[in-house]
Design a protein around this nucleic acid. Structure first.
Lengths: 134, 134
DNA sequence: AGCCTTGCTGATAATGATTGTCAAAACCAT
DNA sequence: ATGGTTTTGACAATCATTATCAGCAAGGCT
């Protein structure tokens, strides 16, 4: 049976409190910063569970770290992520879903899944960068 | 200055000899298997170089490993990868490129890049799986 | 051809994220 | 409260990758 522990709640809460994607390590640090004595391994386990049950989305940063995020919907979707400030926007999937499927089918592939994420600079960070580049 | 060493050629050759995406470790093993005494660090360096110069494409496997592949074109494109046998097909990018850009612009993002890869089972592996599931 | 500068190599150590281990503690139904 | 089982957490282990650094070699130069 699945038990309810304050640790699990703490991880879920910390995820919710965060707008963008966070690494397990960062989450662990954040929790410790608030005085929680939660263990690192436990954070990893909780995140893995959340990702499995669909309560959290996970993706890999370009540097290879696994990042997690509490998303507003359990449905399949994708993300537009600011590589500077971490701001994350959930993307309407229809167009790509269709495309990914078409491509797969056209080549005889089945059980297609896809990794689709867009990284960029959000409006605010774009402005900052432009200013500092002058 | 950039020098020409047999090690670099060996790595490039080993990449060319391979159809799908390969990890640095696998490539190193493959080279050793053929009797080459090339060092692991050198394989990593050579792959990083090839990826930088655009002579090789790199992506991260769902498990977090960095995989490399010698691609037929230097232009930006994506991949359809069989998660069972590793067969890789290069994908016509137009549709997604357009979409990714539109999404980014629509949300005020600039300097958009995207990670787009489709994993599935190729026709052959689909048949195998279907057979073993019966 | 021989020298010389400087980039390249490779054995190994270091790093850093993640996972495995296992005894002790916590959870929940009874 | 008790028992049975899950979960936790400190720590070791693992695994891919990167840094280190002394020795080697590529290519230009004479």
């Amino acid at each position: 049976m699945k038990r309810n522990t304050w640790q699990r709640e703490a991880v879920r809460g910390a995820l919710d409190a965060n707008d963008g994607f966070v690494s397990a390590q960062a989450l662990h640090s954040a929790l410790h910063a608030t005085g929680s004595p939660i263990g690192l391994a436990t954070v990893y386990r909780a995140l893995a569970d959340l990702a499995t049950t669909g309560d959290a989305d996970s993706l890999q940063s370009p540097e290879g770290e696994s990042l997690y995020r509490a998303c507003s919907t359990n449905e399949h979707h994708h993300h537009l992520i600011c590589r500077n400030c971490g701001l994350t926007i959930e993307i309407e999937p229809h167009a790509v879903e269709q495309w990914a499927n078409d491509v797969a089918v056209a080549n005889g592939f089945t059980q297609a899944e896809h990794i689709v994420d867009v990284f960029g600079l959000c409006a605010a960070c774009s402005a900052l960068t432009a200013a500092s580049t002058l």
